[in-house]
Amino acid sequence: MRTPIFERSERVSRPFRNQLRPAERVFNWVLLMLVFLIMILPMLNVLAISFSSNTASQVADVTLWPKEFSTEGYTFIWNARNLGQAFKNSSFVSVVGTFFTVIISAMAGYVLIQRELPFRKAIATGVLITMMIPGDLTLVSIFSLNKSLGLIDSYLGLILNGLVSAFSIMLMRNYFLSVPESLSESARIDNASELRIFFSIYLPLSLPGLAAITFLDFIGKWNSFMIPLIITTKPELFTLPIILRQLTQPTDSTSGVLQVYDNARMAAIVITVIPLLLLYSLAQRFLIGGLTLGASKG
């Protein structure tokens, strides 16, 4: 019989399941309710405005419930020329891009865990440095660079820009660090090629990590705005963020008269976020597992 380290009274009041004491649990719930409210109220506001009528959406006091319920905002957005095409463009570019980004990042991550690899440290440092470069340093040359590569107004251009992400590489490296080296060692002894080891050992054992990277990378690509804006001039190639920005923030001259109602602005926001939300609920299962291994081994 083990000697209890803690007070007898504590043991007696210990709940059946391994849980916080009732008082603590209540406090926990209250805290989380508060957080829940703080998080969700502003977003309910967005939703409410998006479902209000044109004139009602302008009023400052639409809070949690639509005023004069209407879908005028959504119709406005829906009727925008090229919206459907923009949706398709974004989907195509994001899916294809993410696919390749994940493969490339995974391979690079694998490279960075080879302990005896000459210059490995230098390579890793180089990758890390790319994360430190402010966009303004390279902003003005984006069009010029893509023009010399013939990537203007092309799907290839939209996919290639942003194809490699240092962040994804570093994360994949961390997941791979948790795969036991003995597996790869014995595989090498059996004369397996590096690619083989990569595909049949490391990848399957890091599936959660891959899922995590895929999801986060997809979000980044879906929301990417500045570079697609600069390298596309043909409207049929515009991606969703561009079309929505064009719609809801019309540039007008100093005494211009253009105006977009707030419900349309909010509708545009909802439209952008819904696909990501759906993806999130799908990925939630993997996410917990995936990001785990990456971070804690970091």
């Binding site: 040359s141 069009f143 010029s144 804006l229 064009q246």
Partner: peptide, 20 residues
């Protein structure tokens, strides 16, 4: 006529810098 979808200043800088 060419009209940038948004961020006129940045797009203009890019185009001119590229020699357009």
């Amino acid at each position: 006529m060419e009209k940038p979808a948004a961020n006129y200043g940045e797009v203009m800088m890019n185009k001119l810098n590229a020699g357009e």
